[in-house]
Amino acid sequence: MTAGIDTPDRRGRTGLDQHGRGLTGNPRVRIREVELLSCHWYVLRNTTFDYQHRDGHWSREQRETYDRGDGATVLLYCLETRTVLLTRQFRLPAYVNGHPDGMLLETAAGLLDDDDPEAAIRREAHEETGYRLGPIQRVFEAYMSPGSVTERLHFFAAPYDPARPATGGGIAEEGEDIDTVEIDFTRALQMIRTGAIADAKTIMLLQWAALDGPFRHAQDHRRGAD
């Protein structure tokens, strides 16, 4: 008997070795075996599959996938003050892979769990920043590391009121210790260039805000003045 397969794991899940077996959307891919490597909290699998190459020949391949569920993130912005509200928290994977202190500036984000994307990001934004979001804009969806991680991230943007103090901080019971940082939008773009902002989802939302989002016209005006 194996936890996560035929007996519940710590999160009550079984059948974790069945993921992907029934897929039929790509006739050039045939799933042969799914091995459960770990389900301590998220799920690590090793999948063996046959793949038909462009020239017609088939090869037997293996890939590990890390399944942590899908997530959502939101850029909080204020047009009047030309600021964005980001979070700062410690990220161990970044720290052990070269980031000076592991303290990353990020847009508020979290996993969907059992919620739909909009409900999830409203929950996460409130937990991390203290703000209850009003109107919210869906921006796009993206697979953040499709070579190994299954997560699909849902991107949103929403205005916030800087006159109201941020009172989040995360959930202490889950080990979260989150600061909020209000940054001038132009400075935030500069921080991408210097590496002071190095989180992918945050970079994507800031660049969207400049190119096609709430700060687009301000950026056009600046370019016209140069």
Rank of each mutant, 00 (worst) to 15 (best):
T2K: 13
D6I: 02
P8F: 00
R11W: 11
R13D: 08
R13F: 01
T14W: 00
L16A: 06
L16I: 01
Q18E: 14
H19N: 11
G20W: 01
R21I: 10
R21E: 14
R21Q: 11
R21S: 09
L23Q: 11
L23M: 11
L23K: 05
P27W: 04
P27N: 03
R30P: 09
R32N: 15
E33Y: 07
C39R: 02
C39T: 14
Y42H: 07
V43T: 15
V43H: 05
N46D: 12
N46M: 13
N46L: 15
T47L: 12
T48E: 15
Y51M: 06
H53A: 04
D55K: 04
W58T: 13
R60D: 11
Q62S: 12
Q62M: 12
R63G: 09
T65S: 13
T65N: 10
T65F: 08
Y66V: 10
Y66C: 09
D67P: 08
D70Y: 04
L75Y: 12
Y77Q: 12
C78N: 15
T81Q: 15
T83V: 07
V84D: 11
L85M: 12
T87E: 14
T87S: 12
Q89H: 14
F90H: 14
L92D: 15
P93V: 02
P93K: 07
Y95T: 06
G98M: 03
H99E: 14
P100H: 08
D101Q: 04
D101P: 09
M103W: 14
M103S: 07
E106G: 02
A108S: 13
A108M: 07
A109L: 03
A109V: 00
L112E: 05
L112V: 00
D114R: 01
D115Q: 06
D116E: 10
D116R: 01
P117G: 09
A119L: 07
A120E: 03
A120M: 03
I121T: 02
R122I: 08
A125Q: 01
E127F: 05
G130V: 06
Y131H: 09
G134L: 06
G134V: 04
I136V: 12
I136E: 07
Q137A: 13
A142S: 11
S145V: 13
S145C: 10
G147N: 13
V149W: 11
V149G: 08
T150V: 09
F155V: 04
A157V: 04
A158Y: 00
Y160C: 01
D161T: 01
A163M: 08
A163V: 09
R164A: 11
P165K: 05
A166M: 04
T167Q: 13
T167F: 03
G168V: 00
G169I: 02
G169Q: 02
G170L: 00
A172D: 09
A172W: 05
A172L: 02
E173Y: 05
G175W: 02
D177T: 02
I178M: 00
F185N: 00
L189T: 09
Q190E: 15
M191P: 07
I192K: 00
R193Q: 15
R193M: 13
T194H: 07
G195A: 06
A200I: 05
A200M: 03
K201Y: 04
I203W: 01
L205T: 03
Q207M: 06
D212M: 00
F215M: 06
R216E: 15
H217F: 02
H217R: 04
Q219V: 11
H221W: 08
R222I: 10
R222L: 12
R223P: 11
G224K: 07
A225M: 12
